[in-house]
Design a protein around this nucleic acid. Structure first.
Lengths: 197, 197
DNA sequence: TACGTCCTTAAACGCTCGTTCAAATCCATG
DNA sequence: CATGGATTTGAACGAGCGTTTAAGGACGTA
């Protein structure tokens, strides 16, 4: 029969683990965080984790996929939009900051993907490249249509994404700036700075 | 008597170790890199490292101090300059990129300082804050004197530094972009974007 | 040659951590 | 209640790693 949604489905349980793991990885890094740490934050034993995941690496990989899929969904949404490159980029930055801070709790591309074995690493890189290309395409469009200053879209995109990806390194939830304020300020600076005078 | 500069002084040896350690930390992270890995890259045994450093953590700390001292020296130089805020910022970004890529080989603030014990961590933070404040002061000056757009200097500084600190994550020495091209492009975008139209 | 200091080595210790596994427990169903 | 699959436990293992230590070498000096 169809399984009941009793207290927590297996899929929900996996997600819980991913959130705990992501928090631990972010605090201590992949190698610094222990499997036991991830488990006991959920009041389960570490052995139990292996019922849901093959090993630690697979947990890290799932974290990356989870984040990247959200980013790619965002990208698809933006691409479907018919707004100007400027508006698209603004929306992207705003949503990205919101996603990283409020949804993923500072856990996007910061989690060292190099810790993955070559096969899984490559799969992460493919998705990340897909996102990068999307951003670059918007920048290129703005340059072509003449609303953005000339420049290398690749380097500009790296700078934009670097600024945003770095946020978790200094963000303090107790601090003065809310995620919305940060998003606005970053969009103003990073997108506004691209516009031709 | 004064020690001879035979093949390598003790101080040079320490620096060699720091360079090897920085490379290893950058590749695998602090916890991911083993002491043995650092040592054997220099064709020495791991036990020998403990003649030069008390423990692994002290090596990480020394890496940070080394980088931060160079950054602070750069900041002092820029501050002594009498140029415009725009010129100062440009110089700072250019030199920062050059420093990170050519001198430190992608090893500035990327090496997880959170791995340090509270005491050493605090000492790193103090220096990093000192640098941050310096950058913010320049931005504030530009805003006050009216050459820069209005904005929160703190958030703008975070964005700038994030963009620059992220460079090692994607930089490929074999790639098409040289450190000078990257420096120029980043200065154009990050500083140029601040200017009032 | 003999000494003493600086440097290096090799081996061992102790601890942590990822992973495995057989047994125990839970729980919807018949 | 009894069954059986899903889930959880607790203990154990084996490997890797940071660190210590005692002894060995290199080498300028007396």
């Amino acid at each position: 029969m169809a399984p009941m949604a009793k207290s927590a489905t297996a899929s929900e349980r996996r997600t819980e683990i991913l959130k705990s793991a992501a928090a631990a990885f972010r605090r201590r890094g992949y190698h610094g965080a222990s499997v036991d740490e991830i488990a006991s934050a959920l009041e389960m034993t570490k052995g139990n984790l292996y019922y849901y995941f093959k090993n630690k690496e697979e947990i890290l990989f799932a974290c990356h996929e989870y984040s990247l899929d959200m980013l790619l969904a965002l990208m698809a949404e933006v691409q479907a939009d018919t707004a100007s490159p400027e508006a698209k980029l603004r929306k992207l930055v705003l949503a990205f900051v919101h996603l990283i801070l409020d949804e993923l709790h500072g856990t996007a591309l910061t989690l060292d993907p190099e810790a993955l074995s070559p096969v899984l690493f490559k799969r992460v890189i493919v998705k990340r490249d897909q996102f990068d290309q999307g951003v670059r395409a918007i920048i290129q469009l703005g340059i072509d249509e003449g609303s953005f200053k000339a420049g290398d879209p690749k380097l500009i995109e790296f700078a934009m994404m670097g600024a945003v990806n770095w946020i978790p390194k200094w963000f303090d939830p107790e601090g003065p700036a809310t995620s919305n304020q940060i998003g606005d300020a970053f969009a103003d600076y990073l997108v506004g700075g691209l516009l031709k005078p």
